[in-house]
């Protein structure tokens, strides 16, 4: 597919995602019923959970593309990996800011060592390393390869981190935490959540394609200016 088509597809998806997100906001503010025990603050959950899901999807894609890049050494795979990783950072940051905001109101404390929250925080740092390696390696090609190694090790480390933070929790029970998910979720809340999951996913895919075509254009510009200077 040409860069132009990808750019177009990305713009379309991002637009759809934004409109869809507007609908989700309307639903979560005006349509869905208020959760009884947690009150109004619980509505942040419609941003928090989809952001978490999207960041995991994005980091997973980044690791997948990184592995394929090391295998096939196609520059486009590296561009896809970095685009996905950037998206992952954005959505993980959303997850990590909405979590404590909600926590302060719901549980009276900003931070709890809730396993998924902890895992996301560690993932955020793993991918911070990914970007630092990329930007601070002298030889850009080496930087791409090294960053890909970070992404792959990070992805394969996730199950261990996940199990260990859960195990830690079982060892040190935290103050009361209300589990938001589960089959007990009333119908309208579930609808809103699913709608929001859809909106975030589409928005991410749109941003991902936009970012990817930007990288493509950038490298094309690089090649052209190089040929012009020779």
């Amino acid at each position: 597919m040409s860069t132009k088509k990808i750019l177009l597809a990305g713009t379309m998806l991002a637009m759809i995602g934004l409109v869809w997100l507007g609908v989700v906001y309307w639903m979560s503010f005006f349509w869905v019923s208020t959760e009884v025990t947690q009150g109004i603050a619980q509505r942040i959950f419609y941003v928090h959970v989809p952001a978490a899901w999207t960041s995991f999807l994005a980091f997973g894609l980044a690791a997948l593309f990184s592995g394929m890049y090391l295998w096939l050494r196609d520059e486009r795979l590296d561009r896809a990996a970095v685009s996905a990783a950037e998206g992952g950072m954005v959505f993980a940051t959303i997850m990590l800011t909405t979590g404590p905001l909600w926590g302060k109101i719901a549980w009276g404390t900003y931070w709890t060592w809730e396993p998924r929250l902890t895992l996301t925080l560690l993932l955020w740092f793993i991918f911070l390393g990914y970007f630092l390696v990329r930007s601070s390696t002298e030889n850009p090609e080496k930087g791409k390869r090294h960053a890909a190694v970070v992404a792959i090790v990070g992805a394969l480390d996730i199950p261990f981190i996940h199990l260990s933070v859960i195990w830690f929790r079982s060892l040190h029970p935290a103050p009361v935490v209300i589990k938001p998910e589960g089959p007990t979720l009333p119908g309208d809340m579930l609808t809103t959540l699913l709608m929001s999951l859809g909106a975030f996913t589409v928005l991410f895919l749109g941003l991902f394609l936009l970012r990817y075509s930007l990288e493509n254009l950038r490298s094309e510009l690089d090649t052209r200016s190089r040929h012009a200077s020779v």
């Binding site: 560690l122 740092f125 793993i126 911070l128 390393g129 630092l132 601070s136 480390d157 981190i161 933070v165």
Partner: peptide, 18 residues
């Protein structure tokens, strides 16, 4: 291989070593 040298190492391995 990076400009940051050893200062980068803890950022890379501490989250993985949790």
């Amino acid at each position: 291989g990076t400009r940051m040298g050893d200062t980068l190492l803890p950022v890379l391995i501490f989250p993985l070593l949790a």
